[in-house]
């Protein structure tokens, strides 16, 4: 098995993957490797296709070309039963948290346990309560998603993604909309999950402090392609256009008016 950083085996690999919607390509020629048991950050500007990549990796959107390997399975040509088994080892936080609106936070977290296992309801609820406490939401167990803030919904989504101790965890912008303290707490939690459980974690984010705190491996997207990947240092040193601007928060050049009313001004 191939490795990155000399040590970790590869959990997810894509070759020549392209993703998009209804014939419109959003990302093309994506060749990435996600190391097992590490935190991989997917970076890139808003609208560059990070969520799309995630959905394609999860087979929620059909790939427009190329292949995806999770472990040794080619996702694009494995049968439904196998896909189902693979999915059970995956936890996902969607960008909008995607909590079930008719269920309380506790019921949301317990949902996968209750639906997929033969567990006793009391035990499932107890487990769910534990995970809610892990993200600091224990007091809000009986609130409905509509009754808590966006950041709290996000944290509840993380608790739900974690409830079955997945081997691979996908988090789409977990820190967006959180205050700096909570966000830092979340980073510590993500690190803790990796350290204690050895979970492979893929985090979509553009929060620089979090990236510096948690990233073992980075994949940077821009202009519909992967422009750099590797450790944070490797990506920073890659010199690809856009990387330095991203990390040093340099805004794009303000366009100088070459047309328009301002050019008609008399001195």
């Amino acid at each position: 098995m191939s490795t990155t950083n000399g040590t970790a085996p590869i959990a997810i690999r894509t070759t020549g993957l392209s993703c998009g919607y209804d014939g419109r390509v959003v990302l093309q020629d994506v060749n990435i490797a996600v190391p097992q048991g590490r935190i991989t950050c997917v970076l890139g500007g808003s609208g560059c296709g990070k969520s799309t990549l995630l959905k394609t990796l999860l087979m929620l959107e059909p790939a427009m070309g190329g292949s995806i390997y999770i472990g040794a399975d080619d996702m694009c040509c494995c049968d439904n039963a196998r896909l189902q088994v693979l999915r059970r080892s995956v936890g996902v936080l969607f960008q909008g948290a995607a909590l079930f609106n008719s269920l309380t936070l506790l019921e949301n977290v317990a949902f996968p346990l209750l639906e997929l296992t033969e567990l006793d309801e009391a035990i499932a609820t107890e487990t769910a309560r534990l995970k809610l406490a892990l993200v600091g939401l224990a007091p809000y167990a009986h609130f409905l998603p509509a009754e808590v803030s966006g950041g709290m919904r996000k944290r509840c989504g993380i608790a739900r993604a974690l409830v079955r101790d997945p081997a691979i965890l996908f988090l789409d912008e977990p820190g967006a909309g959180l205050d700096p303290t909570t966000s830092a707490g979340l980073d510590r939690m993500i690190l803790g999950i990796r350290n204690r459980l050895g979970t492979t974690i893929v985090v979509v984010t553009h929060e620089l402090p979090s990236i510096h705190a948690i990233a073992d491996h980075c994949i940077m997207l821009a202009g519909g392609r992967v422009i750099a990947q590797g450790t944070l240092e490797q990506v920073g040193a890659s010199g690809a256009p856009g990387v330095r601007e991203f990390f040093e928060r340099i805004p794009p050049d303000e366009p100088q008016p070459t047309e328009g009313l301002a050019t008609l001004l008399l001195p």
């Binding site: 959905k55 999860l58 969607f94 995607a98 609106n101 949902f111």
Partner: peptide, 11 residues
């Protein structure tokens, strides 16, 4: 995205 969330859970 709730349907997607259910699908990735395997439900």
């Amino acid at each position: 995205d709730e349907l997607d969330a259910m699908t990735v859970m395997g439900v």
